[in-house]
Design a protein around this nucleic acid. Structure first.
Length: 262
DNA sequence: ATGACGATTGCGAATCGA
């Protein structure tokens, strides 16, 4: 099974590119983030015409996550258990969706940005990740052999080499110790990140800011990641980043990340 | 070895992203 995760930065603006990517890359399951659309306005036809089923959750123009699958789409969940909302009183956001595709429980995740270390959004981010970790631990507690994938835009660069200039990020989100610790806590449950071994750094990125010629200057961040449960991690045959998808007019600021499972 | 920010709402400027 070939699984891709891609922050598309608006599914409506990216519809043609998504179709071309699915065809070009022979994708079985595509996890999308930042669809930026309410469910009723999701442009399903260009994707379903290719033979995919779609599950989406989007409340408004913010966030929004989806899964498109041509290998089955069963038992859809639109939140993980305990998933926090933002602020007080908590407002639910569309940041997680899941389905079983070809026997694998796949999650498309859009982790909160955090904005600034002093912003309430940052604590929301850490709490959200803590609850996600609890869910992941629970899944493996129930069935240590469960095939589960947690993929998406994590808004965290796990290593200093995952940003083009670590000095510029000191004191900002995406590189802070608590954020990285949150990913370490996830791996402590048994899940592991499966793309890095096949896409080594330094200088390997999945996101490049639209401004300041970041892409041609190769100044990006690695923040789109794929975690797999122990049983699923054993099935990884390869992984790559479709950097070419970031080129040209009408590109998302993120590139797709693809994982091949045996 | 790529190209100077883009999407949404709503019709201009504000918000968000990272």
């Amino acid at each position: 099974m070939r699984l891709a995760t891609w922050n598309v930065n608006s599914v409506r603006a990216r519809s043609d590119r998504i179709v071309e990517f699915l065809k070009r890359s022979d994708i079985d399951v595509l996890a999308m983030q930042e669809t930026k659309v309410a469910d009723a306005k999701f442009p399903t036809d260009p994707i379903t015409n290719l033979g995919y089923e779609i599950a989406h959750t989007g409340l408004n123009q913010w966030n929004g996550v989806a899964i498109a699958s041509r290998v089955g789409l069963a038992d859809v969940m639109t939140q993980f258990p305990g998933q926090p909302g933002f602020a007080e009183p908590a407002v639910a956001e569309s940041r997680a969706i899941s389905a079983i595709c070809a026997g694998v429980r796949i999650w498309s995740l859009y982790v909160p940005n955090g904005r600034e270390l002093s912003d309430p959004h940052y604590m929301y981010k850490l709490g959200w990740l803590d609850k996600l970790k609890d869910y992941a631990a629970g899944v493996l507690s129930d069935d240590p052999q469960a095939p589960v994938a947690l993929v998406g835009d994590w808004n965290i660069a796990p290593l200093d080499e995952d940003v083009w200039d670590p000095k510029l990020f000191v004191g900002h989100t995406h590189v802070s110790q608590p954020e990285r610790q949150a990913l370490a806590a996830l791996t402590d449950t048994g899940f592991s990140e499966v793309t890095r071994a096949h896409t080594p750094g330094p200088g390997t990125f999945t996101y490049w800011d639209y401004t300041q010629l970041r892409f041609p200057k190769r100044q990006g961040m690695r923040i789109d990641l794929a975690y797999a449960s122990p049983a699923l991690a054993k099935r990884v045959a390869g992984a790559w980043i479709d950097r070419d998808e970031r080129k040209g007019k009408g590109a998302s600021d993120h590139a797709p990340v693809i994982v091949e499972f045996e």
